[in-house]
Design a protein around this nucleic acid. Structure first.
Lengths: 122, 122
DNA sequence: CTGCTGCTTCGATGAACGTCGAAGCAAGAC
DNA sequence: GTCTTGCTTCGACGTTCATCGAAGCAGCAG
């Protein structure tokens, strides 16, 4: 098919995680997953991720993120570190500024978790 | 009269389906969403949700959940309460036992969040 | 009624988290 | 070199969280 839109090929296909309604999670597996959700479990981090994901060019400068919140720079830096350590975003320094972008695979993985089959009563 | 286990502080009302790469989240919106992720940000709760979602008949008895973990009953009850208040599950007492099942709409809502993978400008 | 079982709530405690100011580090301008 | 700007790390402080034992409540069987 012709591709008008620059949306990349469906990443949702390469789902690695079974849906929540699937086979039972092991302890280690659940712990790893929990780390990702812990990173998402803060309003500031959610807005940061949202801003980065929806930024022009797919990446955002920390300088822009800083002024968007009524929080100190160390605090924003801390939240970015948490998102980074969860594998949700990655940063790169270019000259004076640091730019962050999302890691598409990480979002795709979460997508698979909530794939709809969540059981329907027979 | 009905002293069933209700969803006391349901939080899912405002949480809607716009993908993360979509329009910017407001503060209130992000806070509501964060509450749901906070409920998912624990390995025990993830496994509980997983067990309930994949249980025979779509619902699980607390008595079965209790023996599946090396934790005290109060702790399991606490985790179930957190999931309940996040609107992810709901419980019902039938005679001696209490059964929990997932709330499909809650999972569907999360599915929407990650539905559209973040584009990367090639 | 008395007991017993299943589940929840209460109260306390130790660990983890969000926030800040101060200090450190990197890159560029002078 | 020195100075300035952008971002991160460090150390501390108050809050929130996971966990437990004890106590409370609901339902059922004698």
């Amino acid at each position: 098919m012709s591709k008008f839109l620059r949306i990349e090929d469906d990443v949702t296909g390469q789902v690695c995680c079974a849906p929540l309604s699937g086979p039972l999670l092991g302890e280690a597996e659940a712990s790893e997953l929990a780390k990702v959700f812990k990173a998402l479990a803060d309003p500031v981090r959610l807005r940061l991720l949202n801003m980065i994901a929806s930024a022009e060019g797919g990446e955002a400068c920390v300088c822009d993120l800083n002024v968007a919140f009524d929080l100190s720079a160390p605090t924003i830096s801390h939240h970015l570190k948490v998102l980074r350590q969860a594998g949700l975003i990655e940063g790169e320094r270019r000259g004076t500024w640091v730019y962050y972008k999302v890691v598409p695979d990480a979002i795709a993985r979460l997508s698979g978790l909530f794939a709809i089959p969540v059981f329907t009563r027979a």
